[in-house]
Design a protein around this nucleic acid. Sequence first.
DNA 1: GGGGTTGATTTTACCGGTAAAACAACAAAC
DNA 2: GTTTGTTGTTTTACCGGTAAAATCAACCCC
Lengths: 344, 344
Amino acid sequence: MTGKRKTIKDIAKESGFSLSTVSLVLNNHPRISQATRDKVMSVVKKYNFCPNSAARGLASKSSRTISLVVPNLTRVFSDIYLGEIISGIYERAASQGFKVLLDIATAQFIKSQEYLKLLASRRADGMLFIASDIHADYLSAFEDSPYKFVLVNHLFPGKKLNYVSVDYAASARLAAEHLLGLGHRRIGLIAGTNTHTGLQFRDEFLRVSQTWPAGAAEVAWVDGGEEWSQRGGYAATAKLAAKMGDLTAIMAANDRMAIGAMRWLADNRREVPEDVSVMGVDDIQLAAYVNPGLSTIRHDLYQVGIESCNRILQLIRGEIAECSDLLPTSLVVRGSTARAPAKG
Amino acid sequence: MTGKRKTIKDIAKESGFSLSTVSLVLNNHPRISQATRDKVMSVVKKYNFCPNSAARGLASKSSRTISLVVPNLTRVFSDIYLGEIISGIYERAASQGFKVLLDIATAQFIKSQEYLKLLASRRADGMLFIASDIHADYLSAFEDSPYKFVLVNHLFPGKKLNYVSVDYAASARLAAEHLLGLGHRRIGLIAGTNTHTGLQFRDEFLRVSQTWPAGAAEVAWVDGGEEWSQRGGYAATAKLAAKMGDLTAIMAANDRMAIGAMRWLADNRREVPEDVSVMGVDDIQLAAYVNPGLSTIRHDLYQVGIESCNRILQLIRGEIAECSDLLPTSLVVRGSTARAPAKG
DNA sequence: GGGGTTGATTTTACCGGTAAAACAACAAAC
DNA sequence: GTTTGTTGTTTTACCGGTAAAATCAACCCC
């Protein structure tokens, strides 16, 4: 059973070939005859041999690993958001023979510059960074660095950092056009202001609303809180109601806040969509199940994961030098939005 | 800026010490004088040197990495369950200088025996496995294997597999005692039957109910579905109502199903807790926020993560040879449970 | 002042692979 | 019949560290 753990040398000896022939077989090198390949593989199978990954990494100067950094919020795992992105990343990485190293952006992680050490020590060949907020200034370390780095579903205007993100400005346009097209002219916006994408969304939504050809809309906006949660949306809606009592539509920067908004409206005897239309962003599963169904902007986060991983792999392989991808979004109309009520 | 990436050899040369002195410094070996340590470190700092982890792993025969395998369900990430456990694991691993390699138990992952290759190739020193279901027979490969392996919050009766889990049987007793103590004698149980812990919970709950000194209770049970979700709980409650119309309490195997049950009851004009008491398991955040607050059994999953990681590290270091830990749980009483209504 | 400790540093022997270059053998080209 | 190319395999030179054993220099004790 035990006996020394086999090495490539043992396989070479037993199969009668040289060390490097075995190595070539294991790496599926094309210039190896089928006969040799079969003989070597039979010995490999016999001992269930598995090449030592540290040795491999040392010699090949590649760990075949990408580091995935997720935000520090424990509860963020409870967001479907992460699950979809991570699934996409993992799927693509696995299909290319890459492993995924998980890290959580704790204070300690940042303070000790683990994000740099990981790459400097070649423990990972590249890094994907999910959900950095506007205060993540330490990421500047990756500007013009030799390290392979991609921001996932975020971006830093002004910093030279690669990113793959859903196009939040486009989402804002789609959403604004939908609501304005339904005749809404007094709109409450629940924004997320702790990310650049959130700010982009807010600004573009405001811009489109204020320059709408058929008549500018008035938009009152409040912050939905750091967590973008249902509770945050609930509280924000109360604030909006105080600010603009006669609003006819509420636009929330994500579905969870939108659902919180619907809850507040229900608790305060306003009908959705008869009195107030409500709209979210993301198209999480729950959006289809609330009553009425939530109109929203669909963000394909699984695809964001896939693409982010594609990009970091290309960067690692040197196939590209940089990337800044914005993925398209689409409007999903359900029951929560309707024509603005006639002025009463 | 660029120039060759520095190696330990460069540091040795520049600091005037030998190769291995530098190595000893970097590994905080006690038998190095402070003066030497300082000199070496100043050079290390100067170049921001970081030892190559592959070389280190090769020479030390340790990757200082643990593999974390999570279930294949995309939506499982939306369960607070995972977030807490992973946070605990990560925290402990990081504090011990270990990295966490993430894997998803996809069909491909299992079929290709990645779980074995990971350890055979020494890419990871040990493996933590979260949320295996009753069909995970392939885990038998770890029985009597030299590989370090721990099941997290699950167990396999009959298989010799290390585990760290919350004590589901104890939870069942706490829950049953609470409901029986409140006088409930006709109880509906929404069980989870696709995990061994779920089965343990069901069986123990039934046993206690049927042998209650003050008078046995009748328990009707239905399966809550593979996902243990709110929707599953909703559907299960409908089935229970058909099966035992006059039940006075519903026990769900987790909070999400319990919340689904409450929703069904609300939709069907039964008051909680006046007509029917409802109880869950886990004590997720949401449990405190539903109305009425959900009585439940608290499972400290962060602690499960911490302990699991502790154990796998001890196994790796050879400090222990096996483990089978059951962590305590506690009763949390909120508004969803009350005395059974007088027979009407 | 020789022998035993102890502390600090260096020697030495790997760890287990990869990949570029070299080589052999045979086929096709001129 | 040498030259040039191909294909398949081996040689060789590392990759960048660790750790056990060896060395060296004080220090201590009788």
